[in-house]
Amino acid sequence: MSDTSVTSPPKRAGLGSLGFALCVALLALVPWFTGSVFHFHIAIMVCLGAMAAAGLATIAWVGQLSLAHGAFVGIGAYTCVLLVTRLDMPFLVGLPAAAVFSGAVAYIIGTPLLRLRGVYFVLITFALNELFRLVMLEFPSVSGGSSGIAGIPKISLFGWELRDQSQVYVFTLLMLAAVMALLWTIRRGPLGRWFSAVEENMALAESSGIPTARTQNMAFVIGSGIAGFTGAIMAHYIGFISPVTFAFQLSVSYVIILVVGGRLALAGPLVGALFLVPLPEFLRSAQEYQHIIYGVVLIIVLRFLPAGLTALPGKLSQWRRSGE
């Protein structure tokens, strides 16, 4: 991404990070304090949004923005649901299969796709997302057509069905933690350094001996695999999927979560989802304005906080210092 004001991951992982982790942990406990089923539902949706956006973030770390992310969530959802309902596989087989299959699709189309950069990559992923919807609608025997697949069984682990929202929440929270841990490991390892080298300066990375094409493809495969993983959980929690579920709008919502949270920060997807997913619930009385508010928030963040809400504390202390 051409944004130069964005700094690489902050090195001073001291008090700030600790405080942030504490805040997130406290927020994660909120549904238990209130005990409301509805709050558990919101919390699950936050986790799912953060997880999918984390996949999108992985792709953003090599400097690409995918508008086909919703389609990969869809590929994972359909993979898992079809395995569970048609072949009677357990959910715990379908879930990794969803991630692997989404990743495999990304691997196959990634090589030709990632030759394109910037807006051209965005445009082709936009076209592919649309193509996914159209093709799925053409095969109702697989996708259920425009009426979709309803009555998807609930998530079950070793024959134990997660009936309660609170149980699903614990499971989703653990999965989100696993995804974030994976990303944290990647960022600290050599692959993470390759990612940021490719993102910052492709030509320089290439001439330093980094296989840029393979690095980008790796990020695309990991990110899309995470999308498929999210899709499987989402499908079995909500219980209904159709090709329209995974249309352009879903991809856009993930872009908004990521951009508002912060494109290049590890915590970006978390912050974005925590802020945006519950937002409509606080605006109950003004529900029809919900999307308008999303749009306004997006434009304002892009304009004044191009590195996202995660950069807000840094900016604030900067303003305070310059104000003195």
Binding site: Y294, G295, V297, L298, I299, L302
Partner: peptide, 16 residues
Amino acid sequence: LSGMIASLGLAMILQN
């Protein structure tokens, strides 16, 4: 890229 993302937000505002 930022201009394009901003236009996504603008589209949501106008349509809604």
